[in-house]
Design a binder for these strands. Structure first.
Length: 572
RNA sequence: CGGGGAGUGGCGCAGUGGUAGCGCACCUGCUUUGGGGGCAGGCGGUCGGGGGUUCAAAUCCCCCCUCCCCGACCA
C-alpha cells in the first residue's frame, strides 16, 4: 500500500479524551476514530489488525473442529423472554421496535438464537456433538463505557457454542476450546492466564476467564508464579493455617475493656492501643435468612463475600449495610465483638483459632469501647471455620504453598460450561438410542476480538508508538523512501518503487511511504504506526547498494544489500 | 443513577460583556532534506442546542444534549 493513497491521518497531539495507552495510540496513529461514547470506526489500518486477530481465532476454532456460521444482530425480544434473560440484562440491552411494534434487541450475545437454531435442526444423539461459532458485533449499553476499545458499547466478539449429549461430552468439547484459547492468545503475543472464575447465575461447574496481564485491566486476579493455580479474586483461596488447640501455652489475662472514644475504625484503634491491625479481630455483621451473623477475620484482612456465601452454602447471605445498622440501633457498629449476644451464627477464618498468646483486641459490644485478650474457646465460640478472607499478594498458594500474586487483568476471553439452562428453556432436545428425550448439554466460549486488539497494544507499545507483534501488524514491512532534493532523488525514488514491487511480488505485505514529506515526518510516522520491520532507502545507502533495516520492537538497526533484501525479508 | 469536570475550525488549546484567536493538520509558492525544518500567503468556526438578560453574549442566567473522570453496575 502506498501511503500517498492510504486513508490515514496521524495526529501529533494525544486526543484529550483518551485515558489509556491503547486508546491514545490507536487514535493518534489513525487506526480508529470515535463516533460516539463506546462506539468506534475502524479505519483501514485498524481494520487490518482486527481482521488478523479474527483470522487467528478462525484458524484455531476450525482446527478445534468448530464450524463457522453467522447469526443475526437483530434478535426478537420474544426469544429473550423465553429464557428470562430480557430481565436479567435489562437496560444493558439496546432495544428497538419495528413498524408493527414488535420488540427486538441488538445482540448482546447469542445463546438464545443459537439454541433455537440447533433445536430446529437437530434432534438425535447421532447429531451430537456439534460446535458452532461466529464473529458478530455485540451491543451492550454499558453504564459507563471507558478506556476506548477495552469497554465499548459495540464490540466484535467470537462466540462459540457446543452441544453435547451429556456432561462427559461437554467436558471434551470444553477442553478443546480451552486448549484452542491458549493457542489463540499465544499467537496474538499476549501474556495471559486462564483463571477459575466464580460460577455465576448461568450455572455450570467450570468457568474460566482468560486474563491478559495489564495494569489498566479492570479485574483483579490471583495467580501463583510457581504452579498453575490462578483464580478470580472472588473465587481465590489460600492455603489455610492449621488451627492450634486452646490452651497451647499460658493463658492471657481475662478480657480487659479499654475506652476508645470515637474510634470505630481498625486503624485508629490499633494506633490508639499500640497494637498491629493484624492483632485485632474484625467482626463483620451479615444477614443470613433473617438472622444476624458475624464473620470473624483478622483486622488487617477483608471479608470475601463470595467466600462467606460458600461457607454458608444453601443459605442466603448478605453483608449488612448502613440501612441494616439503622434498623438495629442496639448493634454498636464499629464496636462489635465476637461475643456479641445478638448474633446467632458465627463463621471464623481459621486464623482466628490460632493461639496468639495474648488473645485478640476486638469490640466490646459497647460504643466507644474495645477489649484486649479475647480468646477463642474461652471468651467466644464459633459455629464453623471457613476461608473467609480476600486473598492478597503474599498469601500461600493453596496448591503449592508458594506466595501468590494479585494482578490486574483484561478479560479477553471466557469459557463456560452452561449445562441445560438454555436447551431446556428453548427445547433443544435429542432422542437417545432407546428413544428417550434429553436436553442437550451446552457450553459457550467467547473472545473479545476488538478487545484483544486493545489488550495487545497495552502490552506492545513504547513512547514513540505501537510495536505490533508480527502476527497482528497491518503490514509486515514499512518501506520509507528518502529521495531528498539532490541529484540522486529520481534514482532513489525509482529504486524504492522497484523494491516495493519486488517485495510485493515475493508475497510481502508492505506499507510504502512514497509521500513527499521530510525524513523526520516519515520516521516519526513509521514508529507511531508500528510495523515490525522498517526499511529505509536513501541516497547515501543507494550509492553503497544497501538498505537500512530497523526492528521496531528492539530498535536494532543493520544494513542489508539492496539486491539481497527481498530474499532476506521474504525468507525465500 | 450519585459526585466531579469539559464542550470554541479535522486535532490540541487560549479567549470572563465590546470586531473570534494561536499551534498542529490542510492548500499555494519559495527554501530545506537522515528523526515531526524555515519564510510568505491562504482555506476552514451559526463558539454543543434552545430560551432569557443586555445597546451589545463564546463570556451572565435558565433548560436540554453530548463527552470525559471517580463510584455503583458489568456474560
Amino acid at each position: 500500500m502506498r501511503m500517498s493513497r492510504l486513508f490515514l491521518r496521524t495526529l501529533r497531539d494525544d486526543p484529550s479524551d483518551a485515558e489509556v495507552d491503547s486508546h491514545r495510540l490507536l487514535v493518534r496513529a489513525g487506526y480508529i476514530r470515535k463516533v460516539a461514547a463506546g462506539i468506534y470506526s475502524w479505519l483501514p489500518l485498524g481494520h487490518r489488525v482486527l481482521r488478523r486477530v479474527e483470522q487467528i481465532v478462525r484458524e484455531e476454532m476450525d482446527a478445534a473442529g468448530a464450524q463457522e456460521l453467522l447469526l443475526p444482530i437483530i434478535q426478537p425480544l420474544e426469544l429473550w423472554q423465553r429464557t428470562g434473560r430480557d430481565k436479567a440484562y435489562g437496560p444493558l440491552m439496546f432495544k428497538l421496535t419495528d413498524r408493527k411494534e414488535t420488540g427486538f434487541a441488538l445482540a448482546p450475545t447469542a445463546e438464545e438464537v443459537i439454541t433455537a437454531t440447533v433445536a430446529g435442526e437437530y434432534g438425535s444423539y447421532r447429531d451430537l456433538p456439534v460446535n458452532l461459532y461466529q464473529f458478530g458485533w455485540k451491543y451492550r449499553d454499558e453504564l459507563r463505557p471507558r478506556f476506548g476499545l477495552l469497554r465499548s458499547r459495540e464490540f466484535l466478539m467470537k462466540d462459540a457454542y457446543s452441544f453435547d449429549a451429556d456432561i462427559e461430552g461437554l467436558k471434551v468439547s470444553y477442553k478443546q476450546m480451552y486448549d484452542a484459547y491458549h493457542r489463540v492468545f499465544e499467537r496474538c503475543g499476549l501474556s495471559f492466564r486462564p483463571v477459575e472464575a466464580q460460577a455465576g447465575e448461568i450455572g455450570g461447574d467450570v468457568n474460566h476467564e482468560f486474563m491478559a496481564v495489564a495494569a489498566v485491566g479492570e479485574d483483579d486476579f490471583v495467580w501463583c508464579r510457581n504452579c498453575d493455580y490462578a483464580a478470580n479474586v472472588e473465587a481465590a483461596v489460600r492455603a489455610a493455617p492449621a488451627p492450634t488447640a486452646v490452651g497451647d501455652g499460658p493463658q492471657p489475662d481475662a478480657m480487659a475493656p479499654e475506652h476508645t472514644p470515637d474510634l470505630p475504625g481498625i486503624k485508629g484503634v490499633a494506633e490508639f492501643l499500640s497494637v498491629e491491625p493484624g492483632q485485632m479481630l474484625k467482626c463483620i455483621a451479615f444477614d443470613v435468612d433473617g438472622e444476624m451473623g458475624l464473620a470473624l477475620v483478622p483486622g488487617d484482612r477483608e471479608v470475601n463475600p463470595y467466600a462467606l456465601n460458600r461457607a454458608l452454602a444453601g443459605r442466603k447471605v448478605r453483608l449488612w449495610d448502613d440501612a441494616d445498622f439503622d434498623a438495629h440501633p442496639d448493634v454498636p457498629k464499629g464496636y462489635i465483638g465476637p461475643h456479641f449476644p445478638g448474633a446467632t451464627v458465627r463463621v471464623a477464618d481459621p486464623v482466628v483459632a490460632v493461639y496468639t498468646g495474648d488473645g485478640w483486641v476486638t469490640g466490646a459490644n459497647t460504643v466507644d469501647h474495645h477489649v484486649r485478650h479475647a480468646l477463642f474457646g474461652r471468651d467466644f465460640e464459633v459455629d464453623s471455620f471457613a476461608d473467609l478472607v480476600t486473598v492478597v499478594t503474599g498469601d500461600p498458594c493453596p496448591r503449592c504453598g508458594a506466595p501468590l500474586s494479585v494482578d490486574r487483568g483484561i478479560e479477553v476471553g471466557h469459557t463456560f460450561q452452561l449445562g441445560t439452562k438454555y436447551s431446556v428453556a428453548l427445547g433443544a432436545e435429542y432422542t437417545d438410542e432407546k428413544g428417550a428425550q434429553h436436553p442437550m448439554v451446552m457450553g459457550c466460549y467467547g473472545i473479545g476480538v476488538s478487545r484483544v486488539v486493545a489488550a495487545v497494544v497495552e502490552e506492545h507499545h513504547d513512547d514513540s508508538g505501537l510495536t505490533w507483534p508480527a502476527a497482528l501488524a497491518p503490514f509486515a514491512v514499512h518501506l520509507l523512501s528518502l529521495p531528498g532534493k539532490g541529484e540522486a532523488a529520481p534514482e532513489v525514488r525509482a529504486a524504492a518503487d522497484r523494491l516495493y514491487d519486488e517485495l510485493r511480488a515475493a508475497g510481502v505485505e508492505v506499507l510504502y511511504d512514497d509521500r513527499d514529506q521530510s525524513p523526520g515526518v516519515k520516521f516519526a510516522d513509521a514508529d507511531l504506526l508500528g510495523m515490525p520491520t522498517q526499511l529505509v532507502l536513501g541516497a547515501k545507502g543507494l550509492a553503497r547498494g544497501v538498505v537500512e533495516r530497523k526492528d521496531r520492537g528492539s530498535g536494532e538497526r543493520d544494513e542489508v544489500a539492496l539486491d539481497a533484501v527481498v530474499g532476506v525479508i521474504s525468507g525465500s
